[in-house]
Amino acid sequence: MRSWLENYLVPLLTVAAFVLIWQVAARRYPPEQFPAPSDVVLAIKELSDNGVLWTNIGISLARFAAAYLMAVVAGIPLGLFLGRFTRCHRAIDPLIQVLRPISPIAWFPLAVLWFGIGNAPAVFIIFLASFYPVLLTTISSVRGVPPVYLKVSTNFGAGAFLTFVRVIVPAAFPGIMVGLHIAVGTGWIHLVAGEMLGAQSGLGFMIVDARNFLRTDQVMAGMLLVGLLGLAIYKAMKTFEKAIGRRWGVAA
């Protein structure tokens, strides 16, 4: 009873209170400047009815999935390699450390120049935003594999390949999962930025487009949907993680 209260009822009340305060506050301003939640709900309905919303959500999710998968496919193997081969890591680490603090958005002018307007610049920016967390956590997970695991493996005469596949990769896996998780967050955040700057479709574009027509209610509708979808992806990721964790024998 108590857990139900804490898990669902209290958060629900918080949200309700937030919406209420928003509604009351919005009355003091013209709707073009600060739309009320009711306006936003109507805007979502309008966008949903004319199909714009679903098309854009589909496009955004597809771009996000493509960019995220590319980041994972590139980041994990590279991270495993650099984590395992300390010398290569030492050689390449300064380069990573210089490139990493550059906001993916700063790449935008070049991205448009190289890839033109369309899917590619947005995908590129989401890719950059997801790639570094995946890469860096993979490297540190491999380097953080407890030495005793490797000692045991060497002691039993396991070769380099067996040690890598059967010891290092599984031992690093929980850490890599953390990176995948962080990358979902950073990637999704940059989705809007990427689509605002270089795309003609998607949720980010929808927000910019609404702004151009001074449809503040639709701007907020877009923002809200970005948040809700982010939450949904996060939850899906958590569920996936728990299932994997159980299989991996680590307490979930």
Binding site: V148, Y149, V152, N155, G157, W248, V250
Partner: peptide, 16 residues
């Protein structure tokens, strides 16, 4: 050497 096995205080078991 696999013929001389070390047993560690912290077991060195693979949790997965």
């Amino acid at each position: 050497n696999p013929d001389h096995i070390m047993i560690f205080q912290d077991y060195g078991l693979y949790p997965w």
